[in-house]
């Protein structure tokens, strides 16, 4: 008796056999204990792989939740990158590009996708604002998977970032790896991040990522009290272009 190959048995497990082959394989399995044993081994191997991945995913998620807790109770360590992704925001995906389509709007020139492709009018498009603070520093506001990602790149060492949350329970922030001196202050409605007091600037290609709370209806991005961009009603609107560089304070205020 010719036994079934691993390829055929794997295809059986994965339901990749056509109906005629499936009947033949079923007939063979009914009468061949060796192939049934092989099938059981292959199935167990596949289940081992699935189980390992599920365990992997769960471990990553629990580590994230755990680190969120650590970050909130210890104010002198860098918040992990993965903190609170599960708690990230639903907000802007659908209408974020609306502001970009206003004819003559300076925002059109500020819109930058990863490929620097101009965004055309459509409600489902992803939009980003690059405020162009200087040639080496920028703030980018980008809707991402129901979240708002605000990336603050290229600011010098000592840049102070302050996030005040009016309407939301959770916010997370992460600094690039290798920023051991970053300080975090977490209190009700307030999460304050202070960069390293000396040393190199924040890595431009990593930046600071802020994820704002769910149910956020509106928000503003400010530099030293001046509103630079607004997040409102599914739109991202840059108020003006700025060209400053220094120890800027960035406030992202979120509320009704």
């Amino acid at each position: 008796m010719n036994h079934l190959t691993d390829a055929v048995l794997q295809a059986w497990i994965d339901e990749e056999l056509d109906p005629a082959d499936r009947v033949q394989v079923a007939d063979h399995l009914a009468s061949c204990s060796a192939c049934r044993n092989t099938l059981a081994e292959l199935r167990a191997t596949a289940e081992l792989f699935t189980g390992a991945l599920v365990s992997y995913d769960e471990s990553i998620m629990r580590s994230s939740q755990r680190e969120m807790s650590v970050g909130r109770t210890h104010g002198s360590r860098t918040l992990p990158r993965w903190v609170g992704r599960a708690a990230a925001v639903t907000l802007l995906l659908g209408g974020a590009a609306v502001a970009a389509v206003i004819p003559g709007s300076p925002l059109r020139e500020l819109i930058r996708g990863p490929d620097a492709t101009e965004v055309t009018p459509a409600p489902e498009e992803i939009a980003a604002i690059d405020l162009g603070i200087s040639s080496g520093a920028s703030i980018t506001v980008r809707p991402l998977d129901g979240r708002i990602r605000i990336r603050i790149n290229g600011f010098p060492a000592g840049t102070r970032v302050r996030i005040v949350l009016i309407n939301g329970a959770l916010a997370v922030a992460s600094l690039p790896d290798g920023e051991p001196n970053a300080r975090f202050v977490v209190a009700a409605g307030l999460l304050e991040v202070v960069g390293p007091g000396s040393g190199s600037a924040l890595q431009e290609d990593v930046g600071l990522i802020l994820q704002l709370p769910r149910l956020v209806q509106s928000g503003v991005v400010e530099l030293n009290g001046v509103v630079e961009a607004r997040v409102s009603g599914g739109r991202i609107v840059a108020e003006r272009q700025v060209s400053r560089l220094g120890d800027e304070e960035v406030i992202i205020e979120v509320g009704e």
Partner: peptide, 8 residues
């Protein structure tokens, strides 16, 4: 099928 079985 064969590649999957071998990789698993």
């Amino acid at each position: 099928g064969a590649l999957v079985a071998r990789a698993l």
